[in-house]
């Protein structure tokens, strides 16, 4: 499934993440992550975003994330919500 419109979920509060999904003309999944814990958890956060997208059958999107220290279950919930809002 391709992302065809811009949708968002989350906030910029501490312990949350703002996820923005946009169409990607390149036809791939591209993740741009800003995070207050980038040094410590950047790789783990990107991995969980990617697997959540893939689990929902996403094959192409631009995923822009601004993370304020969200835990994994919050990240998954925010990415899922952003996907649901495509429908």
């Amino acid at each position: 499934m391709n992302i065809t419109q811009t949708t968002q979920a989350g906030t910029l509060e501490s312990n949350d993440i703002l996820v923005t999904l946009k169409p990607n003309p390149e036809g791939t999944i591209e993740i741009h992550l800003q995070s207050v814990v980038l040094k410590q958890f950047g790789k783990q956060i990107k991995a969980i975003i990617l697997s959540t997208l893939q689990n929902h059958g996403i094959t192409s999107c631009l995923c822009e994330c601004e993370d304020k220290g969200a835990l994994d279950h919050v990240i998954i919930a925010r990415v899922e919500s952003a996907i649901q809002r495509q429908l």
Partner: peptide, 8 residues
């Protein structure tokens, strides 16, 4: 302190 704050 909180045990975990902003993932830390």
């Amino acid at each position: 302190s909180k045990l975990v704050s902003s993932r830390l």
